[in-house]
Design a protein around this nucleic acid. Structure first.
Lengths: 194, 194
DNA sequence: CTCCTAAATGGCACTCAGTGCCACAAACAG
DNA sequence: CTGTTTGTGGCACTGAGTGCCATTTAGGAG
């Protein structure tokens, strides 16, 4: 029996190659645009074969959004870890507030954000990942008890809308506005009535 | 100068062929699944060439969502047409309430809804269309005055979340629950504070 | 009706994403 | 060392989407 965890040379090199591929792909996307970059380009620039690229990422888009599932899982865990009696909306507000920085750090390049905004294929993938994340968070919220599935869907959807509105306003201001305060304003405005 | 409007044999046959293609495509998608239906299959079943299919729809997915832009435009117009003094949130609630039926009528087959839910490519396209619609509605809401861009984004996003939550609960109940009442509950819960 | 132009069509060739298959090399367990 | 597992590259194939061209057809001008 081998070690199932992430130690060992096999798993480590695999993670390194994956990160290298993602960085190379993002660099090329930002430089030439998503559609004008082929998988062959990425693979060649990273020194692997085209076939191997698809062993690390199921699609070209996933080179950008590869770690989204990990983040979704950890955010869901953060929801579960909140105090039991906390109202659901406050729980979501606190968790999203805590995860603003980690999420931003995973996509440090503002040019990448612009690229995603202007590339239909990337926007589509982002929306799908976002929805998968929302479902996981809704499930975690539901497991905490105190609400039904309808309310869990509603609150997680509204929290996503709050985050989106804050992000858009922040991008419009070119980073001049305070992101945390924008998010707070959004959450306060949408706080559910009784 | 020819007639730019939609009358005339040219435009009418074009609309007819487009509708025929969409119906054929949806039928095949529901029957065999989206991925197991090729554009060749659709074109052959509708009696046109593969090349002509792409003259009516820019992609295979658009055979399902082809009229989304029209709907988005008309919903935005409905927002503009609401009484001037009406609070934004009530405006959105009223417009979405009025458009529940027309939107449902455009996708009458529940099997199609299930198919969209379970097909990644269709879900992705749906999310993109949804977001485009939200942007148009946000612009219309903004043009009414009385709010800033941040609030317009926030309210339209929240309205979308309300609609999604109502739709999901309605699908979960297999149509047993009252969709209008679910939507109303969602809007009431998220009504923004002062 | 005839001629002319604009639009619609079909066919072909091409690029590129994504997959299945196979042969080969490196790591690892015994 | 030996068998097994895991990663890799190469190849061929399907299918979406696009550019180009030759042909047909609708609809307006004379």
């Amino acid at each position: 029996m081998t070690n199932g965890d992430g130690s060992g040379l096999r798993a480590r090199t695999r993670r390194a190659v994956r990160a290298e591929l993602a960085a190379t792909a993002i660099g090329l996307f930002v430089e030439r645009g998503f559609d004008d970059t082929t998988v062959d380009d990425i693979a060649a620039a990273a020194g692997v074969s085209r076939r191997s690229f698809f062993r690390y990422f199921p699609s070209k888009e996933d080179a950008v959004f590869g770690d989204a599932e990990d983040v979704a899982g950890r955010v869901a865990d953060a929801v579960t870890a909140r105090p039991a009696g906390e109202p659901p909306w406050e729980c979501l507000r606190a968790v999203l507030h805590d995860w603003r920085e980690p999420i931003r750090a995973a996509h440090p390049d503002p040019a990448l954000l612009r690229l995603i905004e202007t590339t239909p294929a990337l926007r589509a993938r982002l929306h799908v990942k976002r929805e998968q994340m929302r479902e996981r968070i809704a499930a975690a919220l539901l497991a905490r008890g105190g609400l039904d599935a309808f309310t869990a869907d509603l609150l997680t959807g509204a929290a996503g809308a709050a985050l989106d509105a804050a992000n858009r306003a922040w991008l419009r201001s070119d980073g001049a506005l305070d992101h945390a305060e924008l998010l707070d304003r959004a959450f306060t405005a949408l706080r559910p009535q009784s």
